[in-house]
Design a protein around this nucleic acid. Structure first.
Lengths: 203, 203
DNA sequence: GTCTATATACAGATAGAC
DNA sequence: GTCTATCTGTATATAGAC
């Protein structure tokens, strides 16, 4: 019971801190605001997290765990290559244009000087994991006929880079709104078409 | 004479502020540090720039002017398409992986909530200008024979996205060092080869 | 364990001497 | 015009009541 209460306070703090950090960034959020949002007193907040930096590290770590789960949940079995690529593309595009993912990226880019290990954690849990997934798929189908991918690392990189496009950077800058479902699908179709024409079916 | 002295103080402040902002970000740099770096007193600093925000806006604006000049300096006349693409690619890659450009991006991404107009300014002076340059080139050659680009906007986007690759994001996160000249050239060759095979020479 | 109240430091911005 | 010294707010972190 006591443990449950403690845990719920801790969870409550983390939830509020996550929202605030992602919305406003690390510096703009004070420990007062986090305590107020939880809501707990500042003294209680410091009982659970010895410093603001520790709180940020915990927030990012938990977000990364979720990120990794999302990526690993993508499976592609027993379909055509085009459909598999489209499935991977849809998952990737949904993920990277999600407001929360953009906020995570902004946060770790902002703080990459002060907390380089957090940037690495996010990279490994997100883009790196996605690249590994795709590359292993490309290696698998590369042994089949009708497909010739001389450099699977480059190919995987190229696929995701095309999907990101300039729009992802604009979204990161807050210069443009995230694409609608229709826009995403149009873009995915263009990219997959271009990709398969350019890279695969080399025979 | 008086004007020159004023001007040199102003330049001195801007130079120091630019360095500090790019190295450490907006929040981490205090007006004290900027004054110290110039070196001028804080009162003098406030004579030239009424607030820290104004100073940031001026710093970014001046950086953007330089950025735009760099991009517009790229010319591509009377060569083969492959060479023209490589020339554009080299200029683009040198620009985006420069430590200063990465620092500008980090800075405006960090502050895009507080100063959305600065993010737009940087985007328009950098990526947007580059896209326009490339798209106008693609439109020009699209009228020639042996080249068929159905969607020049997508094509321009694709070219730069491929050149950025995942590495640019890693550099933004501080997770990896900028590529060497050799690495850049290898990447450019891969991208241009892939690009021309996939998109152009459709006949 | 949780709170209120506070210590300490430093931020942005300014007043007034020269 | 430029400086030193200071005002005012707010940040992180903590002490002590309950």
């Amino acid at each position: 019971m006591t443990l449950n209460v403690s845990c719920s306070k801790r969870q409550s703090i983390l939830k509020g801190a996550t929202t605030l950090f992602l919305e406003q960034g690390f510096n703009a959020v004070s420990m007062d605001k986090i305590a107020q949002a939880a809501p707990v007193s500042k003294a209680t907040l410091y009982k659970y997290f010895p410093s603001k930096s520790d709180l940020l590290a915990t927030v990012i770590s938990e977000l990364c765990a979720v990120l990794l789960q999302t990526i690993e949940a993508v499976s592609m079995e027993s379909e055509s290559m085009e459909n598999n690529l489209k499935k991977i593309a849809a998952g990737f595009v949904d993920l990277i244009f999600a407001e929360e993912a953009l906020a995570i990226y902004r946060l770790v880019i902002s703080e990459c000087h002060a907390f380089p290990e957090l940037a690495l954690l996010v990279y490994n849990s997100g883009p790196q994991a996605a690249l590994e997934l795709l590359e292993s798929y490309l290696e698998k189908i590369n042994q089949h006929k009708r497909v010739n991918i001389p450099d699977t690392a480059f190919a995987a990189d190229a696929f995701f880079s095309l999907l990101k496009g300039d729009l992802h950077f604009q979204c990161l800058l807050g210069a443009k709104a995230a694409p609608s479902v229709t826009q995403k699908n149009e873009h995915i179709n263009k990219v997959v078409g271009f990709y398969m024409q350019g890279f695969l079916y080399a025979d």
